[in-house]
């Protein structure tokens, strides 16, 4: 039960993008087209889940055992960078078109605050291994949901009569703000 709650909490109620405002750069950068957004979401979900696994192992079997908590940030970042590199190679091998459409945002998953954020949150809240994995997957799914909603809105926006001054970044940020408002509706549903 707790696992499910953690998952839903990370995906919806405490959505990393829309309530914590983490990972806004790919949220705005890769949400222009629906299918690219879906793929970016899946790639990020893959990275967040693997990161949750790896950082939990590092946290419990290396950092805590040898009293090396001062190395937490450095080791987590190494782990994340390595995993993103792995995903990048994999996507390049499987779909060169996807690799090109994600462009610079693919390696930028390395510095996506969601990924490091979830690793630090999981360590801070003392999640068990399974909880940590579901937390990571939930964070990724939440990011994917936000990205998909945003790309849907932005594709519709292409046909809308947007006032000249709001075209481009302003209207996108306005939409992001309204989405955040909508996600506020989930707040207080449960607290994990």
């Amino acid at each position: 039960m707790r696992i499910i709650l953690i998952f839903i909490s990370a995906a919806l109620i405490n959505n990393f993008v829309l309530t914590y405002f983490l990972g806004l750069c790919p949220f705005l950068g890769v949400s222009k087209r629906f299918d690219t957004a879906v793929n970016m979401g899946l790639a990020t979900t893959f990275v967040t889940t693997l990161t949750a696994v790896t950082t939990w192992l590092i946290q419990h079997y290396i950092l805590e055992r040898y009293n090396l908590l001062f190395l937490q940030n450095v080791t987590f970042i190494i782990a994340i960078a390595g995993l993103v590199q792995l995903v990048e190679m994999f996507i390049r091998k499987t779909s060169i078109a996807l690799y090109r459409s994600l462009g610079i945002y693919l390696p930028l998953i390395t510095t996506n605050c969601i990924v490091l954020g979830l690793a630090l949150f999981a360590a801070l809240r003392d999640y068990t291994f399974v909880e940590s994995v579901f937390f990571g997957a939930g964070a990724g799914v939440g990011f994917t949901i936000a990205l998909i909603i945003m790309s849907g809105i932005r594709e519709e926006l292409e046909f809308a009569d947007v006032p000249e001054v709001l075209k481009g970044a302003p209207i996108t940020l306005l939409m992001a703000g309204m989405l955040a408002l909508a996600f506020m509706g989930f707040a207080g549903l449960l607290s994990v």
Binding site: I58, L63, L68, L71, V74, T75, I78, G82, Q85, M89
Partner: peptide, 19 residues
């Protein structure tokens, strides 16, 4: 510290080399 960081770095380097 050196062993832990070095070990982690080495582990990821091997993994990426294989990949």
């Amino acid at each position: 510290s050196i062993l832990a960081m070095g070990g982690l770095g080495f582990g990821f380097a091997v993994m990426l080399a294989i990949a």
